[in-house]
Design a protein around this nucleic acid. Structure first.
Length: 104
DNA sequence: CCGTTGACCAGGC
DNA sequence: GGCCTGGCCAACG
């Protein structure tokens, strides 16, 4: 059994792999690590380190941005993503063209 | 110890 | 797509 510390670093490691202009979802990460999606959110929330881990590239399963993004809310997260060239349809990311799944 | 909460998700309407 | 419901499970008070 992996310790929660291993889980934590595994999540952050995966997030760090998401390239510029691409995104992934909480659920996708959760399935990869065989854990509950809520744990993903917990890890990202308790480890706000935007400089090292691009947590703004993690969105909801439907492409919606995180409501409680620590840096300034979903609006700020959208701004950061748009800044990387991510295309939106209204309030949600176009997952069809930006979803990243080629993890190591 | 226990009820509540929450950076979620899938299914049904 | 939107709204509700139930399930999930660790963290918090």
């Amino acid at each position: 059994m992996p310790t929660d510390e291993q889980i934590r670093s595994a999540v952050l490691d995966l997030v760090a792999q998401v390239p510029l202009g691409r995104v992934t979802t909480y659920g996708a990460l959760a399935r990869m690590l065989k854990i509950n999606p809520r744990q993903i959110g917990r890890v990202l929330h308790s480890n706000t380190n935007p400089l090292k881990y691009p947590c703004h590239r993690v969105v909801h399963h439907d492409g919606a941005t995180a409501a409680a993004y620590v840096f300034g809310g979903s609006g700020k997260q959208q701004l950061l993503l748009k800044n990387e060239g991510v295309v939106f349809t209204g309030k949600r990311v176009v997952l069809a063209s930006h979803f990243f799944n080629d993890f190591h």
